[in-house]
Each structure stands twice: as C-alpha cells, then as structure tokens.
Design a protein around this nucleic acid. Structure first.
Length: 885
DNA sequence: TCCCCTACTTAGCACAGGAGCA
DNA sequence: TGCTCCTGTGCTAAGTAGGGGA
C-alpha cells in the first residue's frame, strides 16, 4: 500500500462533490425549456429507441436487428464489446464538463431482444411512450394499492380501538389467501416513522472515508503479469524433445486451414503422433457374500462374467433401461456369451448351473452392494435432525481441491484451491448431540453450539479467505421460512413505496449533497433494479460495481434526460442500459460527475450502502436496497400475469405466456446467460422445419381442390394460397431436397438389408435391386415436375376424401403452431436466464395462483426441486386463485 | 465512524440424463 | 434407434447486509 492510504476521503482519485449544492449551481444545470423531454423513468435496454439521433435506429424507425455478431461473451477479457473500466479506459471520453450527446460513441446494446418488442412493432404509438405508460400504470397501481392498504389499516385500527379486540400479534405468521392479506395490513404506521426519517438523515452530510485501495495494487498486478508472462526463448528447442507430442502445439502460430485450398482431400495427414488412450481402472471383484442369484441359487462366476452381471445389477434403479425388453434381451445374449467363454456359472458345491432364462436372474444383491457402497459414503450426511425433524442438508460435500474459477477479470482466477483438512473445519451442533467423528488421525478445528446460526459446518478457503458453510437444503423448513419472510417483507414494502418515492423525489432537490446523492441512488435502485453496490477490495476481487459504487465512467449522460449505464455487475455480467430519467435525476448526475471528478472517481462519493440501508430502515424495519429488487420483480410479475386474459389456449401456449412474463422480470433484473454457439443454427433448423410443414399444408389444400374444384369459390381463394414465407424457388429447392433425402434413405436401407443377409449367411442383393428401389425417388422427382407444370396436385392416399385431407392439413397446422411457439420461446430466451428470477425474486405464490387459475399443472412450471423448495407456497395458496402479492 | 468478520442469499456455469425428433 | 438438444441439478463464486470492536 502506498501513502494513498492516508487520503481520508475517496477510494480512487479522491475527487469529491461539494458538501452543498447552491441554487445557482442547480439552475445552471437546467436546459432550454423548449427541449422535448423523453418519458421517464424508462429502460430501453431491450427495446427500441425512437430518438432521431439515436444510433440504434434504422431508417424506418425500427430497431436494427441484431446479428449473431452482436452477441457478446460478457466474460471475455479482451473482446471488442467487453467494456470493463480497466479494459476500455482509453475508449471512454472524458465528459466531465460536457455531457454532450454520445451519438458517435454509443454501440449496439448487447442484449437487445427481438421478440421482446415484436408484438408492438406495428403499432402507431411509439414503444417508448407505451413502455413509459406501462411503467406509470404499474407505479400508479402501486400507489393506489398503498393507499388502499393504508386506508384498510386506518379502518382496522379504528375498529380495533372500538372493539378493544385482543392483541393481533400474529402478524408474522405465514399468510395465505385474502384473509391473511388483511391480517398483514395491520403493520406499523409508515407515515409517523417516515417523518423521523428526514431528521435522522439530514445531518449525514459528512464525507465518506473510503480507502483508496485501487490504483497502486492494480498497476502492480499488471507489471507482475508482464514480467512473468514472457516465455523464455529456449523453450521451443526443449519442446521438440518433449515426450508429449501435444506439447509441441503450444507455441505454434494459428493454423489457418481455411485459407488453404487442398486438391486431394483423401490424404488426411502426413504424420501423426499420439499417446494412445487412457484406460478406466481395473475391475474390483465383488466381496464373497455378494452373489448373482439364478432361480434361487447363488452362483459363482468368473470375474469377467461377474463384471458383466455387475453392469446390469448396478443399474436396477434405472427402470427406463432395465425394464426395456430389448435391453434385457441384448444384455442376456451377451451375458450368456461371456458365461460360455468363461466356464459358466457354478453353485456353492461347484456344480454347474445352467443359466437359461433371464427372468430367473436376481441382481438384487449386486445392486444393494453398489447402492450401499454409495450410501455408506453419502447417506449419513444427507440429512440432519433439526428440532427432532429429519431435514435435508444442502451441500454436505467439502469442496474438493482444484483451481479457483473466479469470474470475469478476477485477479486470483486459476490459483490452486487447496484441500480442506478437518483441522480447518468448525462444526456447529447441538450441545446434547454426538459430535461427528473427524477422519482417523485428525481433529476438527472447533466444535460450537451456536443455535443462532443455521450452518452445520464451516471452513475458510485459501484463495480469498471466504467462509464456506454447510447449510440445509432449499427444501428445508428453515430455508422455507426465510424465503417466506423475504417475500412478506417485500410485500410489506407495498405499503411504503408511495411515501418512499414521494420523499426521494423531494430530496432529489436537496441542498445537501449527501441527501441528494442518497435520493438519486434510491431512485436508480427503485426504477432500474440496480444492486446496492457494496465496496469491494479492488486488489483481490474482480472490478464490478453496483449503484453506490458506480464510477464516473460507468454513467454517460445524453441531453435532455437519457442516462447510459455501462458497467460490469455481479459475476462480471455486463449491465448496459439506456434509460430516460426524470430531469432532476439527470441534473443530479451531472452535478455528481462535475469536474474535477474524472474516470475512477465515485459518482456517489457521499453515500455508502450502510447509510442508504440505514435510511431505508427508517421507513420499514428490515428495508434494504435488496428488497426493492424482490418487490419490483414480484410486483411486475403480478401485474403482467393479471393482464393475461382467460381465453381458450393450449397448456403450451399458457406456459409460453408465463415464460414471457418471467422473461420481462428477468430482463428487469438483468439476469443473463451465455448464448450457446449452436443457437443460430438451431433457429435456422426450426425455421426450415416450419417451412417444410407449411408446404405440406399447402399441398394438402391443393389436393382438396383436386377432389372438388368448386371449393375455391366456397372457401375463398385465400384459403388455398401459398404461405408468403414460401416461394417457387424455395419449393424447387425443397423438392430436390426431398428427392435426395429419399434416395439416401433407400440406399441406407439397401445396405442394411444386405448386411443382414450377409450375417445370416445368405446371398446379398445385386446392385440391380438398388436401382429398382431407387426408382421410387425418380418417381417422386417426376411427380414434382408434373405438379410444377400443371400447377395441380393429385389427391394422395387410400380413398382420399376432402374431410380426410383437411383433417390432415389441420394436424400439420397444429404442429406448425407448436414449433413456432417453441422457436419464439427459444429465441426470446437465448440470452435471458429465467431461472434466477423464478428461484429468487418472483413470489412463488404468484406462480401457484397462475397455475390454478389457468389450469396449468404446477409441474409444468416448477421442476421437482422447485416444487420442494416452494412447497410452502403451493400448500398455503392451495386452490385460492385470488391471492395477490 | 470505520472496517472486519460473519452469515446468509443470489448467481451463472458445467454436466448428466432423458425427452423428443428425424 | 441413434442422435441432438433441452432441462434439471449440483456446485461454488459473488453478492448483500448486520454486528461488533477498535
């Protein structure tokens, strides 16, 4: 550490905002009142921009479609699109005194989503406006709801006073249905509390003591990397002598095989070296008391036969396989072969046992042995007794040694994570309980009996000194209770949200810099679901930020009220969003970025997460920044699900609708996943399949006309028209494909038939037969030609009728719908991870209500583990589809 | 007040297994 | 029936946040 340590205030460059903001300064940030403001607050991360000068818009006002090239690997350290502070310092323009439009600087947002806006694309109302309206309506609803809740509270209080009813101390008990909701309403009076809020915080204008941990260590790391990164020149010569041929690859330049034309591709290589293969370990024979039973008699087998019996025996829990007659037959044939070869089976006395029938084999002992071997290791650790109840333990395995896989640009990624010894592990257990015995020759670090902690064992890992805990599984009571408490807390926020918003809107104009920063931060957390952003140790962790730790370069301002966030958030996932904000928020951010602040300086230099949370807790006990994410996610989900109309739909369609809502929430929370390399190809495949089916529908309809030409008038010409996705050129290509496909199929079948004949010792068929068979493909080609010429398609099948053909066409249309849904779902989900919001943010009771209301089996939405985790939600809501978040 | 320690939730990734398709 | 691709699950990293001592 350098002398920077002594710098009292900021973490980085040390540039601070002034303590107070004068009226004049505030006014100076104003702009011409004639400038058209954009609706705010609004995120356009996944939607279009209707701004004239916005670079993301193409000529016809629609958002540019993204090619796969636009997909970003957020973890890639030096990819064109990755823009961590460090990586793109040069690219970021210092806009300390000129937050001018950044037209030329803006890049395509990485995660714009086509399907997310598809529905609205042809609407006359600009999408921005629509989204803003939507947001407003959600806010209004929240406000309205808060009012209702407060009114109910007041009413309930009155009644309570009147009747002097007994103490309602069960506020914390699980709620279910409307009755419970009414009960929950009797909380604390937010108004009285929030009055004290301002007083408590108004004197908080003292600068932060944020240590300057960043600059020096960073530079140091860099130098170390460079000096050690260079390879010694002698290495290459040494490599040639290496015993491992693969080693020779390391220093070679990229082999650009695609640039080289190869005349003769039958020669695949000129030289080839390798080390053969790695074998699995030798088979370990079963203990003497574990036998295969045949017809009630335990039999002795040669070790080779025993191993084969063990293959089957170990699989008894896989009914899918072992109950399959083909599987059984094949196994038994091979097993008999091995028996024959190895001297067969013998009983205890050494007498031969003739194994003739599969059904008489009993593998139970073998299965039990293998199972016990596994269980012996695992079972004792899988459950614990918590208050006398059997509860499942979550992660009972000590993390094995290996290499630390830090995410993003973690400075310690790749370091050796050493083996955890019993001497490092602390056990937490009941006083009366028997302390588990450490492995032979070892002892625990400590044994404690802290019943305020939920963990069973704990150790500290060697890389970051992080604590690792063995805790109960997600399906356990204690975790379920914590989950319920979390969602009840965020439901409680509904009562206070209007007041909180009103207050921060007022404080956005506060004279005190600290108050103004706090108000602005709460605004961003509330409106754009930013995380709190605790301080991080820049030397030992990846440089990621959240709201309070946003730096100068993470926020770009574009007049009149657009803010562009671009930073790496949790897990080094890029957060990129262009949002419109209230003008005052825009002005404030300009103030917070004002010179002399520059890159590396904190935007919120007079605010920490502790202060922020302390302020929030004045509104409601336990209210922290994190609660806003849960609240906004669940509240949004409810609004979206409420908009789903009860129309006739298939289960698949309803699930798609649910996923669409889930996706909006996931986008709100910025939950991402990497797009699989094969995604594009998969989508193309699906599109091809849809086209092929559409072609089939069209052919069927033409066949109907073939049977009754008057149908065209009766049904209207449109019914028989070719789908606009298909054209003549495509049909020709597809017809060729079908013919070729048939040819290949015939050829393969012919070869297979011949192989069978050969195996049976019979004479194989001559090529003449193949030619004969291939005539079917020729016929098909001829048929296509004829159809194309006559523009007529003859009815196919046995005794074709219009009804039959139409039914067939409908069936195909149904398949098209299913695949189209699938395709849309898949494309929409390609870079959005739905799981995280489903598991952590969306109140599961909302999902239960949706499933009940729309008659969707809950297992279609919640997997087995999720059903176990959310058992409390499933049971508490039951059939009550009126439950509201 | 600050900072470290501790305990817990939230998060994405890897991989196995099985569903479903050609 | 083989193969592809999707889903579920386990793993563990990376957050948030509260408590307490200097």
């Amino acid at each position: 550490m350098s002398s920077d340590d002594d710098m009292p205030l900021a973490r980085t460059n040390g540039h601070l905002s002034a303590e107070k903001i004068s009226k004049a300064e505030d006014r100076a940030m104003d702009i011409d009142s004639n400038v058209r403001m954009r609706p705010a607050p609004l995120s356009i991360r996944y939607g279009p921009i209707d701004d004239d000068d916005a670079p993301l818009v193409n000529g016809n006002g629609k958002r540019k479609s993204r090619s796969s090239a636009g997909n970003v690997n957020y973890h890639e350290s030096d990819g064109e699109n990755s823009r961590s502070t460090k990586r793109h310092k040069k690219a970021v323009v210092d806009d300390s005194d000129s937050d001018v439009p950044i037209k030329s600087r803006t890049r395509l947002p990485p995660a714009a989503n086509e399907t997310a806006v598809a529905e609205d694309s042809d609407d006359d109302i600009p999408l921005n406006k629509k989204l803003a309206d939507k947001r407003k309506s959600i806010d209004k609803a929240a406000e309205k709801e808060a009012k209702t809740i407060r009114a109910n509270e007041a009413k309930a209080k009155k009644q309570a006073l009147k009747k002097v009813v007994k103490d309602e101390s069960d506020d914390d008990t699980p709620l279910s249905g409307v009755k419970s909701r009414k009960r929950a309403v009797n909380g604390t009076n937010g108004k009285a509390k929030s009055t004290s809020v301002k007083q408590a915080d108004s004197d908080s204008d003292t600068p932060m003591r944020k240590k300057a941990k960043t600059a020096t260590p960073r530079a140091k790391v860099k130098t170390e990397q460079t000096s050690s990164g260079k390879k010694p020149p002698a290495k290459k010569a040494k490599k040639e002598l290496s015993e491992d041929p693969a080693d020779a690859e390391d220093d070679e330049e990229e082999y650009r095989w695609w640039d080289q034309a190869k005349a003769d591709d039958s020669i695949k290589w000129q030289s080839l070296e390798h080390n053969g293969v790695l074998f699995p370990p030798e088979y370990e024979p079963l203990p003497k008391n574990v036998k295969l039973i045949y017809n009630g008699t335990p039999v002795n087998l040669h070790v080779e036969a025993e191993e084969v019996a063990g293959f089957f025996g170990a699989m008894l829990n896989s009914a899918h396989n072992v109950e399959n007659p083909v599987f059984q037959k094949n196994f038994f044939n091979d097993f008999k072969d091995v028996l024959k070869r190895t001297g067969g089976a013998k009983d205890r006395q050494g007498a031969k046992v003739d194994i003739k029938e599969f059904s008489k084999l009993d593998f139970q002992q073998i299965f039990d042995y293998y199972q016990a071997e596994k269980d012996q290791l695992e079972t004792p650790f899988m459950y614990c007794k918590w208050d006398g109840r059997k509860e499942k333990v979550g992660n009972f395995r000590v993390e094995p040694p290996g290499l630390f896989r830090g995410r993003g640009e973690h400075p310690k990624t790749g370091k050796v994570k050493s083996r955890v010894m019993p001497e490092q592990i602390t056990i937490n257990i009941g006083k009366e309980a028997q302390v588990p015995r450490p492995p032979e020759g070892h002892k625990w670090k400590a044994v404690q009996h802290d019943n305020k902690a939920t963990w069973l064992a704990m150790w500290q890992e060697n890389i970051n000194g992080a604590y690792k805990y063995v805790m109960l599984g997600a399906q356990s009571t204690v975790k379920g209770q914590a989950d319920l408490k979390k969602f009840e807390k965020s439901r409680e926020l509904k009562k206070h949200i209007a007041k909180i918003r009103k207050d921060y809107e007022r404080d956005l104009k506060a004279d005190s810099m600290a108050d103004r920063q706090r108000a602005t931060a709460v605004y961003l957390i509330d409106r754009f679901a930013l995380r709190a952003g605790n301080e991080k140790d820049a030397e030992n962790e990846a440089e990621t930020v959240g709201c309070c730790s946003l730096k100068f370069e993470h926020v770009t301002l574009r007049e009149p009220n657009t803010v562009i966030f671009d930073f790496l958030g949790k897990d080094s996932i890029r957060f990129y969003d262009e949002v419109t904000v209230d003008r005052q928020v825009f002005k404030n951010l300009r103030v917070f970025k004002k010179s002399p602040k520059k890159e590396g300086d904190d935007i919120f230099d007079r605010l920490t997460t502790s202060q922020l949370n302390k302020h929030l807790s004045n509104y409601m006990a336990g209210l922290t920044a994190k609660v806003f994410r849960t609240y906004n996610a669940s509240f949004t989900m409810q609004k979206l699900l409420n908009e789903v109309k009860d129309e006739e739909r298939t289960v698949a369609e309803k699930i798609k609708l649910y996923n669409d809502c889930n996706r909006e929430v996931a986008i709100l929370c910025n939950h991402k996943r990497t797009v699989g390399a094969s995604h594009e190809a998969q989508m193309e495949k699906l599109a091809d399949r849809i086209k092929a089916l559409k072609y089939q529908v069209w052919r069927n309809k033409q066949m109907m006309l073939d049977l009754d030409s008057k149908l065209k008038k009766k049904r209207g010409a449109a019914f028989f028209e070719l789908d606009p996705d298909l054209d003549e050129a495509w049909i020709l290509e597809h017809q060729n494909f079908l013919v070729e496909e048939l040819r290949t199929k015939i050829q393969k079948k012919f070869e297979k038939d011949n192989q069978k004949l050969q195996e049976a010792g019979e004479k194989i068929m001559p090529d003449k037969e193949l030619k004969e068979r291939l005539k079917d493909a020729d016929e098909l080609a001829k048929k296509h030609k004829k159809e194309n010429k006559s523009k007529k398609i003859e009815a196919e099948g046995k005794a074709p009728t219009i009804e039959k053909i139409e039914a067939n066409a409908k069936k195909i249309e149904e398949r098209i719908r299913t695949i189209e849904l699938q395709a849309a779902d898949r494309d929409g989900n390609k870079e959005v991870a739905l799981g995280t919001s489903k598991i952590n943010y969306i109140d599961p009771r909302l999902t239960v209500v949706f499933a009940t209301k729309f008659n969707v089996p809950i297992e279609k939405i919640f997997s087995k583990t999720l059903r176990e985790k959310f058992n409390w939600a499933i049971k508490s809501v039951g059939d009550d589809d009126s439950w509201q978040f």
